[in-house]
């Protein structure tokens, strides 16, 4: 159980960070979403992992999950969702205004086009 969760968090963060470092807004946005999934899983794990019982306070029961991280995760999901939605709307506005979705706007697009050692695979991320 632990290794599965750790692996999931690690893979999500690795993929998210890689996407965040891309030059266009949309991959960056996907990367941030992946990172926020990983963070939510991490928060859930901060209350220790317990299998097969509900996260409800029950003094009679010997072992049950800590409900507080679950409340934190719910709040984090809501906030993360709102922030991502805001970024999507903002990115669309930039694309409408400048016609490009480079994170630095039209100037960044031109700088990339001008640089001779541009990696050919970069376009694939769009």
């Amino acid at each position: 159980m632990e290794w599965l969760l750790a692996l999931a968090i690690g893979v999500l963060v690795a993929g998210g960070v890689w996407l965040c470092l891309r030059e266009h807004v949309f991959p960056v946005l996907l990367g941030l979403t992946l990172v926020s999934y990983a963070v939510n899983l991490f928060l859930l794990a901060s209350g220790r992992l317990t299998l097969g019982s509900a996260p409800l306070v029950d003094v009679a029961q010997a072992e049950y999950p800590d409900p507080l991280p679950q409340a934190l995760v719910l709040t984090a999901i809501v906030i993360g969702f709102a922030m991502t939605a805001f970024l999507v709307a903002l990115a669309l506005q930039v694309v409408r205004q400048e016609g490009v979705e480079h994170v630095d706007g039209a100037a960044g697009e031109q700088a990339d086009a001008a640089s001779p050692e541009r990696d050919g695979a970069d376009g694939a991320g769009r």
Binding site: V28, V35, S36, V39, N40, L43, S46, M83, L87, V103
Partner: peptide, 17 residues
């Protein structure tokens, strides 16, 4: 916004730790 979203993720990781 992108920078602060990364910052929020780090804040939550810190809170979790």
């Amino acid at each position: 916004v992108v920078l602060n979203l990364v910052g929020s993720a780090l804040f939550l990781l810190a809170v979790g730790c």
